[in-house]
Structure formats: structure tokens, C-alpha cells
Nucleic acid binder design. Structure first.
Lengths: 235, 235
DNA sequence: CGCCAGATTGAAATCATTCAACCCCTGTGG
DNA sequence: CCACAGGGGTTGAATGATTTCAATCTGGCG
């Protein structure tokens, strides 16, 4: 078992169940809702004051880039937030880009500071969200640092499947998965060619298959075993 | 240039320059100061309520372990905090272990909740600290995912040198570096044997050398070039 | 129909691991 | 003061995983 924990379980609806005064502050800061086509830069490394962007529909990714190389740090699914780290640090230390068509709720940057001053519960939620995200990154880092190609891929498949399951009923035998080979490669520290070979293996062995933009998990227990994320995990 | 950013620069003294009321809360929560010998477990994955441990002297590390494999997620230097993520998530998702003899200031777990309720400035500092740490991890993840062995080692050397420089004057030609080959290996996703070969290369080329528990940076510009962390970096 | 990005594949090359052997401190006990 | 033990450190050779590169294929789309 490569990864004993399961950082997924911390994922939460940050803005659900706030009290009235907190909801008032939150609503006051919601400036608008915007949409973006697939594969567009949402915010670039170095930008300031982009606000908080809450994904309401679609997938995006956070990544760092240099030298023609790219590391995808995390994927962003519905309910997740772009720009919280930037709001706390003052500047985007990574870029964000849409993978699919995207629907975003925009909140003003000062929401963060205001919530710390006037809405401690909301502030705590934001902090917990940030911590959960950090925890997930650390788990991913462990998989990249310790795991072989197949383990990495299996882990990412499961992680993304589970994150989707938290928000809506998802069929493991056919769930959204809008990532190209190169996305998997850049997220996992591998090459597209090698990803392809490993995906072939998973398909040929009847474990999992990536079709167009869908993932089919054909043998969940075996995939969990490969990923090292088996059900013996705490939680 | 592999890494355009330099997350080091966000490192801060979390508890410096608070106002009186905030300092009162902080002092009320400081329970004691403890010391630990080198190479001891400070807190283990799965523990709850360990409090906030502020390193006042010595080095430690945060790591995840499974299957006989280990990923060192981060090192902890004087001024840095063990247990903030655990305080926010409710449980340690990694373990922490001393590298050298360690001096720790212990704060009660409820400091976090109390500060969010009564000391918004302090809470914001904690959140910023967490964000800065997360940013550093993401940078490290990028180096592991995109960089070759030599780049990874060079990056880690520079990063640790710079983090030390933030708190005290440090001589790059002879600074503390209490990491064995295996620590470097587990932090960078490599093996001890390969680390050794790469360290030989850095020494033979007059770039950097790791002696007992010291690091000698002999050619800083060249090391920066190797690490991809050159001075063109913003900030 | 033609185009093009992405997918697929094979063969060669490279990087890193493995494994086993040996070395070299350093600390400890006699 | 020496012998010994043990944990790292060091090294080479063989192996293995992944990359590279180039060529070919494919499917979606204007």
C-alpha cells in the first residue's frame, strides 16, 4: 500500500451551511458568474488580484511551467477554488487553465481579508480548504516520488474518480475524464508515450480504459491495489 | 530556468509584530518548551491534537511512509511550524521526525480556533504561513516531476541554503546541512546510490560539496543554473 | 476531402536502480 | 589504547524503467 491516507475525504463544500451574517458577506463579494471555453488560460503565474474563482461547472488545472517543461500541480473540479493561495500570498505562483468549458463564480479578492475580520467561520473554512488541498498535493507528491508509472496512473485515476463521487453520483464504469495523454504525463512526471503504453496495459488487462474523454474503471479492486489506495486506508 | 518563482520569499516570522491582544492570546496558549534528541519521531501519521510545535532550534522533517518507501515532503527549520495542517484538518496526515537535536515551543491545538475567533490578524498569519508552505511543496513537486537528478539536488541545496539565510547570516561556503544521502534520496525521489554519484559530480566540478553535516556551495551561480533557480527569478 | 492535433508504435539511447562488495568513519567496550 | 562493530558511504556492473525520436495512424472537424 503506497498511500495509507486519503486526502480526498477532506474535500468539502466550503460555502455550504454558513450562518446569515456570513452569507451576507459572501453574497456582497460575489461579483458575477463567467464562463470560459476549453483550453484557455484563466489566470497566469505572476498575476495579482484575480479574486476567488469557484468552479461551478467543468474542469480546470493548476500548473507551473518553465523551459518547455510543465508540471500540473492539481486539477480543479466543480466546487473547487482557483485563487485562494494567490489571495493569501498576494500573487499567483502558478497558472490556471480550463480543460473543458468552464463556469465560474467570481468573488472579490478582499473576501479573504474581510472574512478573517468579520466572519471567522468562513475564514476557518477557507483555511481548512487550503489545508486539504495542500494535503492532497503532498499525497500526489508522494506518489510521484515513490511510485512507478503504473502506480502513478492508477492513483490519479482513482483520486479523480473519488473527487467526482463526492459531489454527485458517478458511475466508475463510465465517468468524465477530460485529460489527454499529455495532461496525465505532465501531472505524473512521465512522457506521453509512456503514459500511452501504460494505459494500453491497463486496458489489455481489463483494469481501466480511457476512451474519448471518459474513464472506465473495469476492475476497481485491482486498480486500488495498483494505486496502493486500497480500502484498508483509514477513514 | 526550471523554476521561475521562489516560494522561499514568503517565509516569515509568523508570530512577530502582533498587537497586544493577539500576543496575549498567543502567550496564553504557549504551554511549554521541549527538546528532542536527533532522529526521533515527533508526531506520527494519524495522531490527533498534537498542538502547534514551533521549531526554535534544530532541523526536522515531515514525511509519508508506506511499503518500505518514504517520501520526505518538507524539511522544518527554525521558525517553522509542525502541526498547523493537523490542527486545521484534525489529524496528522504525515509524520514528523527530528533530524538534529530539536528545541520546540508547544502551543495548544485550540490556538488555531481561538485565533480565528478572537485574533483575526494572527489567524491570517497562520493561513498565510500554510499557503506559503503549500507553495513551497508545489515548487518541490515541480522539481521532482520535471527535473533530472542533478537539477533536483541543486534545487534542494539552494532552497535549504536560502531558507536558512532568511533567519540568520549564513555562509554559503559552509552552512548546516544535517541530511544523509538517504534523506536527499527520499526527498527527491531518487536512490541513495544515485544521490552519491551526483554529489560526487557536483564536488568534482567544484560546484558544491556535502561534508559531514555541512554544505559548501563553491560556485553559487553555477549551482543556480543547474537548479534552474537563477537570479532572473522575480522577487 | 483534406487537415491537423493527438495517439500509437518500435528501436535505440539514456537515466536511474539494483545488488553486492568494499571502505571508512566513529563510537564503544575491554 | 586498541579492537571491534555497525551505520553510512562508495563503487562497479548488470539490469530495468523511461525517454527519445521518428514514423505512422486515427478521428474529428471545417
Amino acid at each position: 500500500m503506497l498511500i495509507p491516507g486519503r486526502s480526498d475525504r477532506y474535500t468539502q463544500d466550503v460555502f455550504r451551511g454558513l450562518d446569515d451574517s456570513e452569507r451576507t458577506i459572501l453574497d456582497a463579494m460575489r461579483s458575477r458568474s463567467i464562463s470560459r471555453p476549453p483550453n484557455r488560460v484563466i489566470a497566469a503565474q505572476g498575476e495579482i488580484g484575480i479574486g476567488l474563482l469557484v468552479v461551478s461547472e467543468g474542469w480546470a488545472m493548476r500548473y507551473r511551467e518553465a523551459d518547455g517543461r510543465r508540471q500540473i500541480v492539481d486539477f480543479l473540479l466543480p466546487g473547487e477554488i482557483i485563487g485562494l493561495q494567490a489571495a493569501l500570498l498576494g500573487v499567483m505562483e502558478h497558472s490556471a487553465r480550463s480543460l473543458t468549458a468552464l463556469q465560474l463564480s467570481v468573488f472579490e479578492t478582499r473576501l479573504v481579508r474581510e472574512s478573517f475580520e468579520k466572519a471567522p467561520n468562513l475564514a476557518l473554512r477557507l483555511a481548512r480548504y487550503a489545508a486539504a488541498e495542500a494535503c492532497r498535493i503532498e499525497e500526489m507528491m508522494t506518489v510521484i516520488g515513490c511510485g512507478e508509472a503504473l502506480e502513478r496512473i492508477g492513483y490519479l485515476m482513482l483520486s479523480l474518480y473519488r473527487r467526482q463521487s463526492l459531489h454527485r453520483e458517478v458511475d466508475p464504469r463510465d465517468c468524465p475524464f477530460p485529460l489527454r495523454r499529455q495532461h496525465l504525463a505532465d501531472a505524473l512526471g512521465l512522457t506521453g508515450a509512456h503514459i500511452n503504453r501504460m494505459l494500453n496495459r491497463l486496458r489489455d488487462e481489463g483494469i481501466a480504459a480511457v476512451h474519448g474523454r471518459r474513464l472506465q474503471i473495469l476492475d476497481l479492486p485491482r486498480l486500488e491495489q495498483i494505486a496502493g489506495l486500497n480500502s484498508a486506508a483509514p477513514g
